[in-house]
Write a protein that binds this DNA or RNA. Sequence first.
DNA 1: AAATCAAACAACCGCAGACGT
DNA 2: TACGTCTGCGGTTGTTTGATT
Length: 258
Amino acid sequence: MSNKPAFKFEEDVDLRRGPWTLEEDSLLVHYITCHGEGRWNHLARSSGLKRTGKSCRLRWLNYLKPDVKRGNLTPEEQILILELHSKWGNRWSRIAQQLPGRTDNEIKNYWRTRVQKQARQLNVDANSPVFRNALRCFWSPRLAGKSEPSPPSINDLAKNLNPYHHQEAPSSAPQAMFCDVNPWCDLYFSPETMAADGTQGFLPTPSNTSGLGSAAAVNPAPELGSAAPYGGADNAVGDGYWSIDELWEVRKLQKWGI
DNA sequence: AAATCAAACAACCGCAGACGT
DNA sequence: TACGTCTGCGGTTGTTTGATT
């Protein structure tokens, strides 16, 4: 039995790190073309690349593999990501399996840079039911109607999430009011869903809309997936939807006991 | 034109589970 | 069964690129 410790590729070879060069890429592609993918540590040793097996695998799967799609995510892909993430959470590889040509890394980056940014700006947790509801209410419908991918503006989301967006918050308003009072989401999602986040669900009924105009009492909640109203001053009574302001009034009455 | 900043993307790291010996 | 190695996943960090001042 030899005293020499086992050869460890990652320790005994001065490994390269950082961005891959064109030469490294072509070497990796050539090797995989000849020998197939898999056995990454063996590949790393045999190919002449001074990279770890992990690094080779990542480079191949995320960048060099022929079926990797380049370019922006389509609106359909974005909607799918939002839906699947609401169902599965941060299971990026699982989500990626549903989007041919897209990698888990790409989806993860999309989520962190685009979606989480919105949540940060709204001061809510991107994984909270409230934010997930907001995405389904505002973002997905908007994406569905778009021919090019672009998220809703922060103003759109804020306008619908934050009742204080265009007015100063009453001093009596509790901190928790921020963002758990999205009337449109309340219409779409059950009290149980909202309660999962510690918030109170709110489904307007004729009994709790007393004191408001009749529209609030008679207009049915729109179907999930139907054209959701969002943002702007267009949420006027008469188009089948309640206005944000009306719903906010209802909410205010209920929550503050005004 | 240069400096600065933020967004987007690429790559690395640690961990856990699968697998082989 | 125990141990070592490999693979894949998710979180994090580093680098590049483009916009703004």
